[in-house]
Simulated scan of single mutants.
Amino acid sequence: MISSAFSRFSGPYLGVFMLLISITSTQMGSASAKFLFAEVGPEMTVALRLACATLLLFAALRPWRRLPDRREWKSVIVYGVAIAFMNGCFYQAIARVPLGIAVAVEFSGPLMVAVCSSRRWTDFAGIALAVTGLLLILPWSGVEADLDMTGLAFALAAAVGWAGYIVFGRRAGGGGVTVAAWGMLAGTVVAVPWAAMVQGVDMFRLEVLMPVMPLAFLVGFLASALPYGLEIVALRLVPPQAYGVLMSLEPAAAALFGFLLLGEVLSLRQWCALMLIIAASLLVTRNAKKA
């Protein structure tokens, strides 16, 4: 009976379970990352997060035992660059706007991936809902305190990175979970020099790094190592529209952890915008064709 239960908990069901854990872990890690900003800044936070996640994944998976083949390397490298770009833009966004808002805007990336896989009238209705939600998020003077437009622009750029992460993650995912480790290494190779160029090499001195390394490893595990390791497998088990439906929980989870850990309170208008974007994702991905 136990073996029968485990046999049913496989395939798409296992993928769904992995994605739910990934969502919770990612948003806890993203909220925790804000505590690093005051110490080392967003660029250095991205570099530390990816570097720590790479060390954790390499220690756990020993990916050198299964190297990507020649055809896989291109997707793995682009997948890693997408990780670095997505995280870099996202951290710049949450340094300026509430976590829930940044994730809601960033979610337009996977939403568009789902739209591209289907051509139904519900797609256009979903796009209309998403655009309405984004318009509600935009700052309007006199209605409430303005949001930082630069932060919103970074969130939109992160959406592009998230779309690339999905597309190239599926292409590279044939190599299994070890691909996440190689992709994370590629992202680290991009993020570390960028942080050194923007913030200076002095940020890599031991007296700067040692006090923040425990938190950096925690963020690397929660926000990168665990969720990316799970998602690279889940992306092969669930179709794109199912991924989109589950990922529609991300904005709500981000708003929840933003409130619990950071004390970020959204206005009624911002909550309405967030719900419209979630509804858009559910509408589009529910009726999308299976991959």
Rank of each mutant, 00 (worst) to 15 (best):
L237F: 13
Q27M: 08
A130T: 15
G126Y: 08
T45A: 14
R120Q: 11
G80N: 12
W162P: 09
R269V: 12
G161P: 15
T150C: 01
V105G: 00
P63K: 06
D148T: 15
A291I: 07
L156V: 07
L36E: 02
D202F: 09
A280N: 07
Y91S: 04
R66G: 01
V179C: 06
R62A: 12
M197V: 07
L138W: 13
I232Y: 08
T45H: 08
M210I: 03
E264C: 02
V201M: 10
M203D: 05
L249W: 03
M213T: 03
A273T: 09
V16A: 14
A102S: 08
A130Q: 13
L50D: 07
T285A: 15
G164I: 12
V284M: 04
G29F: 03
L282D: 01
A95Y: 07
R171K: 08
I166L: 12
Q92N: 08
G258C: 06
F217K: 05
S118V: 13
K290A: 07
G161E: 15
Q92S: 05
M18W: 05
A114P: 04
V40K: 04
S3E: 15
R119C: 06
P251T: 06
W194P: 06
L261W: 11
F168N: 08
A5K: 02
A53I: 11
P227L: 01
G169I: 06
W271T: 00
V189A: 08
